[in-house]
Design a protein around this nucleic acid. Structure first.
Length: 586
RNA sequence: GCUGGUAUAGCUCAGUAGGUAGAGCGCUCCCUUGGUAAGGGAGAGGCUCCCGAGUUCGACUCUCGGUACCAGCACCA
């Protein structure tokens, strides 16, 4: 490959070439190494190994040194077709498994040789190791990884390496990771006293007063938005008898993820992991007419899911959480309208938070329930909606990735270090309504089964708080800040005036904190700044005399001689229109 | 669940080649009456150093088991 083309393909080829160097280094340093695979990834590459020796961080330096030595040999990467691949790879069980499949598929088997090292590989590679001399690389971690991504297989040792076209870029990447660490919502949540976890309730957050303020603000926001869009909020039982879960299919398909409560020998209840079955029961409570459709039930109830121990991750993956859930009962003809309605809400909400997102459409899997025509029709509708909003190529199609009961649209956003999190999900369901024998009377007097749409925009409210904590680096917009305004009197003789200002602000419902403790004003300002309070009002002789206020904005801007009314107007504006930026002029 | 790692004061962390433990921040009190990110001093706080067993005269330190958390894999109908 041409070196001058430092494009995505070249970078991938270079990273992949480096993965061969890594594999060669590991083979030279340790005995009995069996090779798995070693692809390029977003920030470098990895290679999977099977060997007796447990690779630890202490080995990293030696491996890196060996890699550098190998690179200095200036050896070319040479591609060759293997004539008798099954013999060639006879002593390499993992490679052999891959080769067998390739041979069966009628593929030619190619290898790349770089000096003494040979690896099964389709390429492409750089031409010569010389090209990699200036690359910056560093082993980042070692972790277990299942062969071919299946937990039925052996676990190999995966060595992750960060690799960039220059040492400078590598350094910049490490700086980025450092920055990202500072945004970690688990650290910020603890530091700012928003939430925490206790060993006695893994994956279930304790929400402290300041964190709960954010939480409740989001719930209120969600309620306001959805009520305006014709949703009606409901609440179903937290604990439901197993018979309900048998009807819904969860007992059969979601068994391992439900917390159960044994009442007596014959009765087991499960804490709900989802709201849907309760929504079905609420629909079924009375005879429904087509005139009621689309019927939109929203629900913000607590959900519990028994997750496997390694899955938990701060607020991003928890065992107890709330979805801003809703179930829409509609006709097949109403699907497009409902989809657009949901996407409107999603777009409106994500814009308020300044979140960039990506859409994914998952279509009919191999095993599915229902009529194939219904599926095709539904998928066509979803594609239309997505194409009209994002363009034909503006979304990702995951063929065959849908649930067995219907296709779905997922929306993903990214956290501080680029980890991907699913927030919004919209799922069409052709199964649940018939499981529960839901019907409505259509205009022709016939009884018909409604289509069910499951949807959430925040996804999990808890996860959403995790994402926006990192997104804003805990510098929340004015309307979401637990404490919006801090007041620091220069001297305690100014406290009376400060109290007056506080009262006036509180009249508008703003969350104001007046610091009348013994500390110095420098310390008080420090306190509010560490708390990331949007505005600090400082009041001394000058302000008392003029009847005004002076302000320290979280951005660092200092503004003096402000009339309180002007400041209040600005605050009301930020509050009512959910502004992200803080006003700096009054 | 799997592989590897971590667990010491409210927080961030240090520490003991095995002899019951420290710093900074925070907290309390005193002095300081101060104009935009750390004024000075004193003090309290661990007595199960995550939990349980074992080795030992003696375990926070070593061994084994458990739990939680961290990185990754698997999982996320």
């Amino acid at each position: 490959m041409a070196k001058e083309a430092m494009n995505v393909e070249y970078i991938e080829a270079a990273r992949h070439s480096l993965s061969h160097i890594l594999a060669q280094a590991v083979c030279e340093l340790f005995d009995g190494v069996q090779l798995g695979i070693g692809p390029a990834i977003d920030d470098g590459f990895y290679y999977d190994f099977d060997l007796k020796h447990r690779i630890t961080e202490e080995d990293f330096a030696a491996i890196e040194t060996k890699m550098t030595e190998i690179l200095k040999t200036d050896v070319a990467f040479v591609k060759r077709v293997v004539e008798n691949p099954l013999e060639f790879f006879a002593n390499m069980p993992y490679k052999l498994e891959l080769v067998k499949e390739l041979v069966e598929a009628g593929e030619k088997i190619t290898i790349y040789e770089s000096g003494d090292f040979v690896d099964l590989c389709a390429g492409p590679h750089v031409e010569n190791m010389r090209e990699l001399r200036n690359w910056g690389f560093k082993i980042s971690s070692i972790a277990g990884a299942y062969w071919r991504g299946s937990s039925d297989n052996a676990m190999l040792q995966r060595v992750y390496v960060h690799a960039f076209a220059s040492r400078k870029e590598l350094k910049e990447y490490h700086a980025f990771l450092e920055e990202a660490k500072k945004r970690d919502h688990r650290m910020l949540g603890n530091q700012l006293d928003l939430f925490f976890f206790d060993e006695t309730a893994p994956g279930m957050a304790y929400w402290m007063p300041k964190g709960l303020k954010i939480y409740n603000k989001l719930l209120q926001f969600s309620r306001d938005v959805h009520e305006a869009k014709g949703y009606q909020e409901v609440v179903g039982p937290q604990l439901n008898h197993s018979s309900l879960w048998v009807t819904s299919g969860h007992w059969q398909h979601y068994d391992g993820n439900m917390f159960k409560v044994q009442i007596d020998e014959n009765n087991v209840y499960a804490i709900k992991p989802m709201n849907c079955p309760n929504a079905m029961i609420m629909f079924k409570k009375k005879n429904r007419s087509y005139r009621e459709l689309p019927l939109r039930f929203s629900e913000l109830s607590m959900l519990h899911r028994d997750e496997s121990s390694g899955a938990m991750h701060g607020l991003m993956r928890v065992q107890a959480f709330r979805q801003d859930d809703a179930h829409i009962f509609c006709t097949q003809e109403q699907i497009a309208g409902e989809m657009n309605g949901i996407m409107d809400i999603m777009d409106y909400i994500y814009n308020i938070f300044g979140l960039k997102y990506k859409a994914f459409l998952s279509t009919r899997p191999e095993t599915f329930l229902g009529e194939i025509e219904t599926w095709n029709e539904a998928e066509a509708v979803l594609k239309d909606v997505l194409a009209s909003r994002f363009g034909e190529d503006g979304y990702t199609l995951n063929e065959g990735d849908g649930a067995f009961y219907g296709p779905k649209i997922d929306i993903k956003v990214y956290d501080a270090i680029g980890r991907e999190w699913q927030l919004c999900t919209i799922q069409l369901d052709y199964q649940l309504a018939s499981n529960f024998e839901l019907e409505y009377t259509d205009s022709d007097g016939k009884r018909k089964t409604p289509v069910v749409v499951h949807r959430a925009v925040f996804g999990s409210v808890d996860r959403f708080i995790g994402v926006i904590t990192e997104h804003f680096a805990a510098r929340f917009p004015f309307w979401l800040s637990p404490v919006q305004i801090g007041i620091v009197p220069v001297h305690n003789q100014h406290e009376e005036y400060a109290k007056k200002i506080q009262d006036q602000l509180a009249q508008y419902g703003f969350r104001v904190s007046l610091d009348t403790s013994d500390g110095t004003m420098g310390n008080k300002i420090k306190g509010f700044r560490n708390e990331l309070v949007p505005y600090i009002i400082i009041l001394g002789d000058k302000e008392v005399a003029d009847g005004k206020i002076s302000l320290r904005v979280r951005t660092g801007v200092q503004v003096n001689d402000i009339e309180l009314d002007k400041f209040i107007d600005a605050c009301l504006d930020m509050e009512d229109s959910y502004k992200i930026e803080l006003a700096e002029e009054f």
